[in-house]
Design a protein around this nucleic acid. Structure first.
Lengths: 192, 192
DNA sequence: TTTTCTATTGAACACTCGTTCAAGGTGCAC
DNA sequence: GTGCACCTTGAACGAGTGTTCAATAGAAAA
């Protein structure tokens, strides 16, 4: 074996998943076919079915991968004071690592997929609930005087705005509107 | 010919378009294939290609149909005073005829389609701009003291919230959150 | 070395898809 | 009636799909 190749040559399963994500974000679900995934990942067709039993399994793995990414946004960070954690979480939504076409497009396609397939819908709804809970928990930490239901309410209202932001960002709306919307989520979160 | 059939037996072109919309909202783009459309519309396979040259043309027609529906939401209604027109337009977004799974799902799938196909993206972006202009115009009528740029800004901010509302509605969030978000759009629109 | 297990390949199969097309049907003008 | 323009049908074709599988390579264990 030529060891001159990139070390990433190994772990082909991860590369196959990455290829699926890339194709999904670029061309939608119809662009994700086993042959295209294999080509993009630089492996043979059969290997895709070797690591992922189904096309369904492959897409399920992609969905889980994005969900994990989402959930990390509201993960608690003990190193920071609570109100800063919350502010960071709210601002990260318009940050450069989130507001990329690649990520937004991926989310959109997965959402559409969830709407067309009950199996995906369940996974998606569960991830959404976890995100909502995580956000509500951050609010609770930052404003301990609030009752839990109030935290939940605010989290729900913020999520409406956040969903609107990245959906609108996909359409290329001006950055200023996004900035004002971020400020609005902070107002909701930190309101007296 | 048996005239006992429903009169709607005629105008099969409209029925084909309607079938495409129904399938798109229920099963996503992969559910819209010429055979399924023909079956749903109750016509032969060949007739779909007779009225719509392409599958592309059919979906383009579906996209236009939804866009027209959207634009009607912000159409001026000379019979009403301007502030009431604006308030109606803002509240209609959470109205029963809009907040149906069928319509929301349709919009989502078309959006995903636009993200995967440049041709659709252009149509979609144009419709989005017209909607934004329509909303800004309503705001201008209701609040004549505002400069046009301010109207545009408010319209953009409102659209972020509206997009968030229907996207979140698809996930089955509680109606209360939607109600509060509607109130927030009115605050933005009518702010001093 | 031989054996064994996992990783990897690509040809092959069965199926679905969009599109085409020859054939026929329907109503209307002449 | 004869023609004619439009509507409607379903079989057929070719391209592309997901999946299976026998064959091979590689490395580690025997």
């Amino acid at each position: 074996m030529k060891s001159g190749q990139q070390g990433e040559q190994i772990d082909r399963q991860a590369r196959i998943l990455e290829a699926a994500l890339e194709l999904l974000s670029r061309h939608g679900i119809s662009g994700v076919n086993m042959r295209a995934v294999a080509r993009e990942a630089g492996v043979a067709l059969g290997l895709v079915n070797y690591y992922y039993e189904d096309k369904m399994s492959l897409i399920r793995a992609a969905l889980h991968s994005v969900d994990k990414h989402d959930l990390a946004l509201v993960a608690p960070d003990p190193a920071l004071p609570p109100d800063e954690q919350l502010r960071n979480a709210l601002r990260r939504v318009a940050g450069p690592e989130l507001l990329t076409t690649r990520y937004l497009s991926l989310r959109l396609h997965l959402w559409a997929l969830a709407k067309a397939d009950d199996d995906f819908a369940l996974i998606n709804a569960a991830a959404f609930d976890r995100y909502l809970d995580g956000l509500a928990a951050l609010i609770g930490e930052a404003k301990p005087e609030l009752p839990p239901e109030e935290c939940k309410e605010r989290a729900a209202d913020i999520v409406v705005l956040q969903n609107g932001m990245w959906l609108t960002a996909l359409l290329g709306v001006d950055k200023e509107s996004i900035r004002r919307s971020i400020a609005r989520t902070e107002e909701i979160a930190f309101a007296a």
